[in-house]
Design a protein around this nucleic acid. Structure first.
Lengths: 345, 345
DNA sequence: TTGAAAGCGCTAACAT
DNA sequence: ATGTTAGCGCTTTCAA
């Protein structure tokens, strides 16, 4: 097929040994400057590229990192992947992306697949369905580098990178309260996820601060994270069939937010007249929505970058690491029209 | 770090030679059934996984394919990548994704990078800036497998997968005409891209069919493909400053469509009152826009799948291939409110 | 039916 | 300063 030059080819062409060529190419000191120059020039001429596979075999490293996310076609994750790729690329790693589609079984299969491909480390954002994290625990204890981002496993003591979900949720809820709303619902995904619990905590804390009673029936969980419209529609119906129906809602998920809006639209209701909305989303087109969406936006790109930096640092560390950190990045509240700052009558 | 069992470990544990173990694992015939069973059971027990790197080195194949696209965080490409991954995964290939951000220099660097990684083949969608396709021509002539999708290089005789851009553009334009519009503009990206030319042709053909004069000033090119708002705003201004300003527009790009709408909004105009819009986009949230967008949607997932199938077939073909095909998949016109079917007043 | 050995591209310890 | 050799994990001739 498509064959490139090897060290052997160069050695033969120049009448040298492979090790001399290798040394010249790697800038070793124990080599004559003329030989070095000769080799370097020839290598340049024939456009020599070291074979990364041979290097991997030698070094026992694949120079690849595995990524586990729920969905690529999701604005948050596509931006995070962008951040991941940017760092990985510059550090000479390539990235293998796998999708769980929010299924725990799929997630386990993906991790297996990545391990069998001998990735050097794992960047993981848990699926909504995942409860059993013992495989990760096991890998981590064996010294295998894992960094969690966004949907992290709190029980595992390794590097983690997240947005400040508590604070983001708090600000979103407080915005609604300060705009005059008191009957505020909360739509979130699986309770398995720490991000869901953090956001719920931010939500309740804001209510408490402003002396608004917390109503458990105002909180709905969609365990498929907005992947299926029906689940969200059912939640909407339950919310609206209550005696004191909510006037505003804080939604704690990217896909969940867009699916909720689609559901509201389908049921013939209007935002913000029927319900004011603040959602967690990283969609680049949220301002084009009807109405333009008030959102909590996460620094997805930076989260991807930071997680990758930490992972590569762990992979390349000479000595075992015992000190792990949890990086928490600030969210941004973007005011638009789905949550009017002055509640209409 | 994290070490898995090798054939050598198994051989030692069982008192066999590595070749015997290898044969057992690969279901060779020249092996005793008891030995085979013994090996298989032990391998199962210790959860043996062949080292793909060693295999790659042996077979001179990396089992990876390189992907060149302009942007991952673009609904069309994220869906196409989904299709690519689904096929690649099932065929034992992994996928390395690179982004050009519409820069020809970046594209060249990415191809170099992928080649140095010894990918077995390339899946390419050209950047808007690319004019020099000789590197691809060269690789192709050397027998290196390349499949183009979406933004193809017509000059190169290899497999190609595209949507029926001519037909999609024709239908979109005809919809506007049949709704009562006659002053129809066209916004498209770089003329370098065949898809731009195809869509322009579909546009003009629809005008011609309905005896509407083609006005060159109604056609605007944005060479950055909607990546920069300013470029699109300039095009909007030029369009609207004409004596007979257009009443409708057909937009031939994903990012271009959303950026155009953002631009219109920023300039304080209304869709469809100031201008009716039909755009090429695969956004999953186009129906949530204000107004819900009438769109031409491409089968991005299938395009990704088909391209990958063709590529893997080419890679795994024993004999050189001389017959190449261009697969053309139908687009879908989705009627919503940005292009009312009865033109107002 | 099984084993020994070579080789894929590269590096590094060990000669010279 | 340069060459020889072994070895990373695996397959595959060649020999037995």
């Amino acid at each position: 097929m498509f064959q490139s030059y090897t060290i052997k080819d160069i050695a033969k062409a120049l009448g040298l040994s492979t090790s001399t060529v290798s040394r010249a190419l790697n800038g070793s000191y124990e080599i004559g400057s003329e030989t070095k120059k000769l080799v370097l020039e020839y290598a340049e001429k024939v456009n020599y590229r070291p074979n990364p596979i041979a290097l991997s075999l030698k070094e026992q490293k694949s120079h690849s990192i595995g990524v586990v996310v729920c969905e690529v076609a999701n604005s948050y994750f596509s931006q995070a992947i962008n951040g991941i790729e940017s760092i990985a690329y510059n550090s000479g790693y390539h990235v293998i992306i796998t999708q769980t589609h929010e299924s725990a079984a799929r997630e386990a299969a993906n991790v297996q697949h990545l391990l069998s491909r001998h990735v050097d480390g794992l960047l993981v954002s848990l699926s909504a369905e995942t409860t059993d994290i013992t495989p990760y625990q096991y890998l981590h204890e064996k010294g295998f580098p894992i960094v969690f981002f966004d949907r992290i496993a709190p029980e595992i003591n390794t590097h983690k990178v997240i947005a400040n979900n508590y604070q983001g949720a708090f600000e979103a809820t407080e915005l609604l309260i300060q705009s005059g709303y008191t009957r505020i619902a909360h739509l979130t995904s699986s309770d398995n996820l720490l991000i869901s619990r953090d956001r719920l905590n931010g939500f309740t804390a804001a209510l408490a601060k402003h002396h608004i009673a917390f109503i458990p029936d105002y909180v709905k969980h969609c365990n498929r994270g907005g992947m299926v419209l029906e689940e969200v529609e059912a939640a909407i119906r339950e919310l609206f069939s209550q005696p004191n129906r909510p006037e505003a809602i804080f939604i704690a998920g990217d896909k969940l937010t867009t699916t909720f809006i689609a559901g509201i639209k389908k049921l013939g209701m209007k935002i913000p007249d029927d319900i004011a909305v603040v959602g967690f989303t990283n969609s680049n087109v949220a301002e084009l929505f009807d109405p333009p969406l008030t959102v909590v936006r996460q620094p997805a790109f930076q989260i991807g970058q930071t997680a990758t930096e930490l992972l590569i640092k762990t992979i390349e560390s000479k000595r075992p690491i015992y000190e792990y950190k949890t990086e928490q990045l600030a969210t941004e509240l973007i005011l638009r029209n789905s949550a009017p700052q002055l509640r209409p009558h």
